[in-house]
């Protein structure tokens, strides 16, 4: 998907410096593709076609190759998402313990309505994910980079309140 408005390069100033630091951890620039894409996503919240082209130029790989990688991993967003990105585990153990109710509560309280949609205030986007690896502590939820165990329907409003 294309970005709206004029495109501002991502890798300038401080972010360029961060990327240069990342480069020092890898044998080639190409190998730094995934962290470079993380920098893009942390900056814009998602990865536009234009950003893929820029990443390709900066890393010396083709834009089509970058797109192949971005579209392979579900954790890179190819569309704009809310300020906070919520992932709810609905795999068997969580589901047995009420994950679907948690999903419904989160959709209701965020105002997102549907999975994958963004709330009108642009604050939240909610998706279901496969096992987050916390089967002993259902329901497992990730909000942005925070990992939260034992979320219940009743705890949802308080949880959301932590993410203005």
């Amino acid at each position: 998907m294309k970005a709206t408005g004029a495109y501002e390069p991502i890798f300038a100033g401080e972010r360029r410096k961060r990327l240069d630091d990342v480069f020092t951890c890898y044998p080639t620039k190409r190998a730094a593709l995934l962290p470079a894409l993380w920098i893009v996503q942390q900056t814009h919240g998602w990865i536009s076609d234009e950003a893929m082209t820029e990443v390709g130029q900066v890393l010396g790989v083709t834009a089509a190759y970058v797109k192949g990688v971005v579209t392979f991993y579900t954790m890179y967003h190819q569309h704009p998402v809310g300020r906070h990105f919520i992932q709810v585990c609905t795999t068997t153990p969580c589901n047995l313990c009420g994950a679907e109710g948690v999903v419904e509560a989160i959709l209701e309280h965020t105002g997102c309505g549907d999975l994958g949609a963004t709330s009108a205030d642009g604050r939240f986007t909610v998706i279901e994910v496969e096992c987050l690896g916390a089967c002993g502590f259902p329901t497992a939820v990730m909000v942005d980079d925070d990992f939260i165990e034992g979320v219940t329907v009743d705890g949802v409003p308080e949880l959301l309140g932590r993410y203005p």
């Binding site: 294309k2 076609d49 234009e50 893929m52 082209t53 390709g56 790989v61 083709t62 834009a63 089509a64 190759y65 970058v66 797109k67 192949g68 971005v70 579209t71 392979f72």
Partner: peptide, 19 residues
């Protein structure tokens, strides 16, 4: 390197650049 495979999986397809 204009072309590559994206959306790997059942929707895999040939793409032209990023856009």
């Amino acid at each position: 390197g204009v072309l590559d495979v994206a959306y790997r999986g059942e929707g895999a397809q040939i793409v032209v650049g990023a856009d």
